[in-house]
Design a protein around this nucleic acid. Structure first.
Lengths: 150, 150
DNA sequence: AATAAAGCCGAGTGAATTACTAGGAATTAG
DNA sequence: CTAATTCCTAGTAATTCACTCGGCTTTATT
């Protein structure tokens, strides 16, 4: 019942880009260093995010990545779906995916997993990168002075 | 972001026992057949549930398993925790487990995962085996006549 | 007492997944 | 031209998953 590092790293990387939105392309190397993620590995993750249209890239020197949409139009759910696949605690209730077993129509357990899925989806689809940036700023304001990665 | 078969099978098996609560010990072989789970594999799962005090066993001929507590005192969360470990989308917000990375205190992503965890926990801890039995009965009453596994 | 039905236990295994690493080609600013 | 950067493919060690196999112990029934 855990995300892989793909989802974890992916959200951190996207948040990192969101904090720098409007400053031009951000080199992936910088993101990887700040977020302490293997650069080559992060490359693979962001390739998926690019193909899904969540980030766009600028090639060549002084190139890098930036969000393809404003931060308030990208949700945690968008990112997790790209990197981890359809959201849901089991195959049989995954959005989009649903390889139903024959018992699916009459399976009480399935109804439980549906409720779990719905609650996960509601949270993930309601939090945007803009929300995360706002939270970082708020904490930074009335906080300990620590930087908020960032 | 998926459960393994341990959690899936475990809930089905526990629900199977709940439906037969009060009828004496239920042989695991029967549960495995009804739920279409490998008997040997289910043995391993139920061993954990027994050690955790969720089921009790009767050895020897005519033996089997039964719930150790009434169905309304066993939640989905209880079962999932035994079979899948602490609930949460990442290590850093797992209940009980929390191997914090150094960034944990200042990590905005972590706050997101906490909210996801809380919503999962709330659903899983609010649904009991008795709820599932009631739902099965209700559907069976005003339903198509299909059996509800069962 | 013998038998058969059941739980209990530990070891092994093939396949898949995970979290990377390695290396190089293509693109572009300076 | 060079250095910085994205893009792409392949490989890989370690781990996890979903079992299987085989044997021992306990107990109701005959």
């Amino acid at each position: 019942m855990k995300l892989s590092t793909r989802g974890e790293y992916g959200l951190r990387a996207m948040f990192d880009l969101a904090l720098r939105q409007g400053e031009g392309p951000v080199p992936l190397k910088d993101v990887a260093e700040r977020q302490e993620i293997s650069g080559h590995y992060l490359e693979q993750l962001i390739a998926g995010l690019r193909k899904a249209g969540l980030v766009k890239s600028v090639r060549g020197a002084q190139g890098g990545y930036m969000l393809a949409r404003p931060p308030n139009e990208i949700t945690v759910g968008d990112i997790v779906r790209v990197l981890e696949g359809p959201i849901g605690p089991t195959e049989c209730v995954s959005q989009e995916d649903q390889t139903a077993c024959e018992r699916s129509e009459t399976c009480i357990a399935r109804r439980v997993w549906q409720r779990v899925r719905d609650s996960i989806v509601e949270v993930m689809d309601s939090i945007t990168l803009a929300d995360m940036c706002a939270e970082a700023k708020k904490i930074e304001r009335d906080g300990s002075g620590d930087m908020y990665y960032i």
